[in-house]
Design a protein around this nucleic acid. Structure first.
Length: 549
RNA sequence: GCGCCCGUAGCUCAGUGGAUAGAGCAGCUGCCUUCUAAGCAGUGGGUCGCAGGUUCGAGUCCUGCCGGGCGCGCCA
């Protein structure tokens, strides 16, 4: 019996109490089931009676008693106690608990998937770094978090498209092109230009691809460096992301918005909604009507649109492509953008609470490791992969809440010790894989899971493990809804610990010439179920689940 | 000055209004002739930044203050 099954049973019990006239209330849509911190409080607990006390006009404990009476009749429920202010503490019978293993094994790689977000068409944009330099640590965080979030949303049945907004127009690009051109001609890079080894490397590649470029007139040559420099730079970015295991469904070019006239269309839409005025030669949007602290220019006095006018056109484009929810992950250094963007959306007559969501992530820095001499923040994605590897790099980035600024300790994440959380989790998976290999090599036949006596999984360590395994789908759903992939990492650490304690306490394979114990087969299936959940969870984070370490 | 985020064990951090606030690491004490000791058990460690408020109940919600991070362009 899964927590979801139990929640349904609790609601059924409430319905029963209503039908018998014990309670006079509307049956709620859902029941919250949680694992009590202390096992003295049963396998599961629900606070539903506390929540229903007010509408029922009865003391919480009375409501609890009425529900408990009904719930005790439910198959698989061994005991129901009313405790404290009105909690229902529920104990399942052994067979109902053990049956979870069969549920997990049968679901396999889809265990943890739900339909919680079915029907939602979500566009998830992240990274979107300008092609003027290599990805650095902050981008890496959004790459890891965004990719994990996409996997979570998909696991919750949302229709997700991941997108990278390729900012290939604007003054930053002009500066980048000018820097490339300067370097190629052996000149000093302008003060406001881009510096670094990669600029020289890209310039060199462009010259190699276009041998005559330096003989061309200045404007033409600059255009070659602009177009092909961006292309090269973007190639570098994509190949880094590729190595990191992050692939986007759509790479969207800002240029297309300009080329297809989408910017002008968007300005006209805004104008039609009556929030546009002209002043000092520029076109303004009256965003103060929508809570912004000042009005914003959307078309500069020289006729060029501002960057967030393009961003709004991009938003419109996404909406036109049928997405009902636009999610954009941004770093805290861009959070001032949020009220503006919301105001712009309202200027279009849409409700940003329904269509636009901008999770803000706090900053990331790094210390330690031989790369730290490169002054912390300029650590690139490639540097990180070289320093700690893909798995540790991704895990380090998703392990903490986006709301927390993090400081990555490269020495710790590079270490192959128990200090390193990703190894703790991966080790649990490898340990199980090894155990299952040994069982196979000893020719132990697990048979079919349906034939295993899973009710034998009744010791404290076994039921702890079962309980934790049962939580997984709820954790995935919560992580998806709250856009909080770090919850998966924390869960996996908890599950790993629970497994290690089970492993330490419960011998599985026979030693020497011992007989196969009656617990062996059910426990092997419990191990397999645990391995599946660890693999599924790591998969949601884009981290590998090794069979050997 | 205004806005967003953070403040929880020595350190790094979890904690979707519920019961005695948790984990990992670090410290100390134990556990490997047989399934991976990259593990486990035990132990110490807390004014949940401070002060009010909301309620059956607040680390969690509200207000104010203190400390830290990040923003506040016709830059992106």
């Amino acid at each position: 019996m899964t927590p979801a099954d139990l929640a349904a049973a609790v609601l059924e019990a409430v319905r029963g109490a209503v039908e018998t006239g014990e309670l006079h209330i509307d049956v709620p849509a859902e029941a919250v089931i949680e694992r009590p911190k202390s096992r003295e409080h049963g396998d599961y607990a629900t606070n539903i009676a506390l929540r229903l006390a007010k509408p029922a006009g009865r003391p919480p404990r009375d409501v609890a008693e009425a529900i408990a009476t009904q719930l005790r009749r439910c198959a698989g429920v061994a005991a129901v106690d009313v405790a404290g202010p009105g909690f229902l503490n529920i104990t399942l019978d052994g067979a109902a608990q053990g049956a979870l293993v069969e549920t997990i094994v049968a679901a396999g790689s889809s265990y943890g998937h739900t339909t919680a977000l079915a029907g939602q068409k979500i566009n998830l944009e992240f990274v979107s770094a300008n092609p003027t330099g290599d990805l650095h640590l902050a981008h890496v965080r959004w790459a890891a978090v965004g990719d994990a979030m996409a996997r979570l949303l998909q696991a919750s049945a949302a229709d997700v498209t991941t997108e990278y907004y390729f900012n290939d127009a604007g003054s930053q690009i002009d500066r980048f092109a000018a820097s490339l051109y300067a370097v190629a001609r052996g000149e000093q890079v302008p003060e406001d230009g881009y510096h670094g080894e990669y600029v020289a490397a890209v310039a060199e590649q462009v010259v190699a691809d276009h041998p005559g470029v330096l003989e061309q007139p200045g404007e033409d040559a600059l255009e070659v460096f602009r177009v092909h420099g961006i292309e090269r730079m973007f190639g570098r970015i994509r190949s880094s992301l590729d190595q990191f295991g992050v692939h986007f469904d759509v790479y969207f070019n800002e240029r297309d918005l300009h080329r297809l006239g989408r910017i002008e269309e968007t300005v006209e839409r805004l104008r039609a909604h009556g929030h546009v005025y002209e002043s000092e030669g520029a076109v303004w949007l009256r965003t103060t009507d929508f809570g912004d602290d000042k009005d914003r220019v959307i078309v500069r006095s020289d006729g060029r649109p501002t960057y967030f006018c393009a961003d709004l056109a991009y938003y419109v484009d996404k909406r036109d492509r049928g997405f009902d929810r636009i999610v954009i992950i941004l770093g805290a250094d861009h959070h001032g953008y949020v009220p503006r963007m919301r105001a712009l959306v309202r200027g279009l007559g849409e409700d940003p609470d329904q269509t636009l969501e901008i999770p803000i992530g706090q900053m990331v820095s790094a210390r330690g490791g031989r790369l730290s001499r490169r002054a912390g923040n300029v650590l690139s994605l490639d540097d990180l992969i070289e320093a700690v590897g893909v798995d540790a790099g991704r895990y380090a980035m998703v392990r903490s809440s986006m709301d927390s600024a993090i400081d990555i300790d490269l020495d710790l994440w590079a270490s192959r010790t128990s200090e390193n959380p990703v190894f703790y989790v991966q080790y649990a998976h490898a340990r199980i894989a090894s155990l299952l290999r040994n069982a196979a090599e000893s020719s132990i036949d697990r048979g079919a899971v349906a034939d295993a006596d899973l009710s034998r999984l009744s010791s404290e360590r076994e039921t702890d493990l079962l309980g934790t395994l049962g939580e997984f789908p709820g954790v995935v759903t919560a992580a998806a809804e709250l856009r909080a992939p770090h919850r998966i990492a924390r869960y996996l650490e908890e599950l790993s610990g629970t497994y290690h304690r089970f492993y330490d306490d419960c011998r599985i394979l026979p030693r020497g010439d011992e007989e196969l114990s009656p617990e062996a087969v059910p426990r092997l299936w419990l191990c397999e179920a645990t391995r599946l959940v660890l693999a599924n969870g790591l998969g949601l984070l884009g981290v590998s689940a090794p069979d050997r370490m």
